[in-house]
């Protein structure tokens, strides 16, 4: 009986010690740590493509393929997004019916601030993207919101991105559990497989950057939003971040979510944060 009790006590103690040793690791693994995630994310791409200059990742497929890069550099002399840029500049400075302008809605008059979007709004408890902020500005000034996928929004964001060119992405995650949750939700969305083709964002942009998918060369996920909005030859026009995300969904045969759905806002937050330090290169041009 005594021997049995000792054995039981011994087993129990061993189990408790084992639990005590392993449980902190479990907690650590589940803890949301955006800084560690960003470091691991960037290191993955830097190690996978050691010959690519870090700041070059924001140029998407052109950072992966020399021939394409040369063609793009020549195209940049007369960039296809130039019309959108001019239109955006004019729209940005044209007053609303009430006499105010977009500049009244943004810090620093809206100039050179692209690198700070999206941000986490602690009052609302949600991520606010640049596109969303622009439409909120319009509505606050009595104007109808623009479509999130059409030319006007792309022109406005093209101009705002242009005023930030070269500035390092600088997304903040405030000390707020809701902000951490938004980051984590964005990460989950990025890695989750969806659609009949069973693809996640990462299937193309983490596992296969530089590879061809039909005639396209896949861009790396690192810095992929730094170039937004983009002129896409495939679209024969400009496209916003929202349009890009929705198109990615439908290409995997998943029904796109509504524009500025929480999932899209969160994945934009995640992808922008992990690209912190890389320069804004938008507006971009893509095949």
């Amino acid at each position: 009986m005594k021997a049995g009790s000792s054995l039981l006590l011994g087993s129990l103690s061993a189990a408790l010690i084992a639990f005590a040793l392993t449980s902190p690791r479990v907690v650590a693994a589940d803890k949301v740590d955006p800084a560690a995630d960003a470091k691991a994310f960037q290191n993955f791409f830097f190690q996978k493509f050691p010959d690519v200059k870090h700041e070059d990742f924001v140029n998407g497929p052109y950072s992966m393929n020399e021939d394409m890069k040369r063609q793009w550099q020549e195209k940049e002399e007369f960039p296809p997004y130039e019309f959108a840029l001019d239109a955006g500049k004019e729209m940005f400075s044209t007053p609303f019916k009430n006499g105010k302008t977009y500049a009244d809605c943004f810090p620093n008059g809206g100039v050179g601030i692209r690198q700070n979007y999206p941000y986490f709004d602690t009052k609302e408890g949600k991520v606010v993207t640049l596109e969303l902020a622009l439409n909120r500005c319009r509505e606050a000034n009595g104007e109808a919101p623009y479509s999130y996928v059409k030319d006007e929004m792309a022109s406005l964001t093209a101009y705002m991105a242009y005023t930030s060119r070269g500035k390092p992405m600088d997304i903040k995650i405030p000390d707020d559990p809701r902000a951490l949750e938004a980051f984590e939700n964005g990460k989950r969305y990025f890695y989750t497989r969806r659609g009949q083709l069973n693809f996640s964002c990462a299937s193309c942009h983490v596992q296969s950057p530089g590879q061809r998918i039909r005639a396209e060369i896949l861009a790396p996920a690192l810095g992929i939003l730094n170039a937004m909005p983009i002129y896409r030859s495939e679209w024969s026009g400009m496209g916003t971040t929202t349009r890009r995300l929705m198109t990615c969904n439908s290409q995997t045969r998943a029904v796109p979510l509504e524009p500025q759905a929480d999932e899209y806002r969160d994945v934009e937050y995640f992808l922008s944060y992990v690209a912190n330090g890389l320069p804004i290169s938008g507006p971009g041009a893509r095949p």
Binding site: F41, Y191, Q196
Partner: peptide, 20 residues
């Protein structure tokens, strides 16, 4: 039904693809 299975399994399976 296949999409439901996908969504259900991906609740945890996405972590396998995560860069750590």
């Amino acid at each position: 039904k296949a999409s439901i299975v996908q969504a259900t399994s991906e609740k945890d399976a996405w972590k396998a693809m995560e860069i750590r």
